[in-house]
Nucleic acid binder design. Structure first.
Lengths: 141, 141
DNA sequence: GCAGGTGTTGACGTTCACGTAAAGGGAAAC
DNA sequence: GTTTCCCTTTACGTGAACGTCAACACCTGC
């Protein structure tokens, strides 16, 4: 961690029409995660690629889901929470009451994310003020 | 965790002019953290309240710093990173080169936070779309 | 003068999200 | 055919951020 900025955090995911499946190391290099992490996500039920024998084959859908998982992590969700959200999506075509619950939870999530945005804005503002202070004291000398 | 939304995440910190020092349990109840957490932050050098004998006495400055720490946590920073940022503030009046380094790191942080905001926006948008889909399929039945 | 509440310092336990060998299979390159 | 990769599973290890006792100190009201 530290001050390292990951480029992939800045670039939105693009569809990649040149291939139609990916190996585990393909996705590892593309997203900057280890194979261990991907297998761990699979153990936790976050993703379920096909198998050719024992080897994992990731589809475009799997790749997009992985991108979604990683973004979820970046915005501060735990793997358990991400899994829960994936489950919500999966029961999206379930019964009426189920859908109502799902809806409420999604709205909760959205409210939480918006609160988080406000926190970030406040943090940015304070840092910016400090930066300005540094700049002015720098030019003063 | 889970779907629990913390109200304190929504309310900005207010100065409280009614008191001029706080006990550990004062801050615990106000910010919804445990005493163990506060002592842990102290062990990690994030905060250093005065002592009356062995008891900790938190000033307004300590209280504001705690609020800052917790907000840092909410936006995804580790305690080590928060500590590093506090150190940056503390060397703000140091030598010129130091200040320059500090400035760069602050700008890095800001860029990171803005990338995070974009992630959150993308997440919110997807959730909103899903919510709309739920609503429409709900009224269809 | 002592129970009860609030504080303290260790020290060990726990959860999460992986890291890190260990030991092996399958194919492709030489 | 054997070395070289890439991939696999199983299993124990690790760092961060506390939780959870245990054992003790200090004031406060009764």
């Amino acid at each position: 961690m530290g001050a390292a900025i990951h480029i992939e955090a800045l670039a939105p995911i693009e569809p990649r029409t040149d291939r139609d499946s990916f190996s585990i190391s393909d996705l590892c290099t593309e997203f900057g995660v280890t194979a261990r992490a991907l297998r761990f996500y699979e153990d936790e039920g976050l993703i379920g690629p096909e198998r050719r024998g024992t080897a994992r084959i990731y589809s475009h859908r799997d790749r997009a889901r992985l991108a979604w998982i990683l973004r979820g992590k970046r915005v501060g969700f735990s793997l358990a929470e991400i899994r829960e959200m994936i489950d919500l999506y999966d029961v999206g075509d379930g019964r009426k009451v189920q859908r109502q619950v799902t809806l409420e939870r999604c709205l909760d999530r959205i409210r939480l994310l918006e609160a988080q945005k406000r926190d970030i804005d406040a943090h940015i503002e304070e840092l910016t003020q400090f930066v300005d202070l540094l700049k002015s004291s720098d030019s003063a000398h």
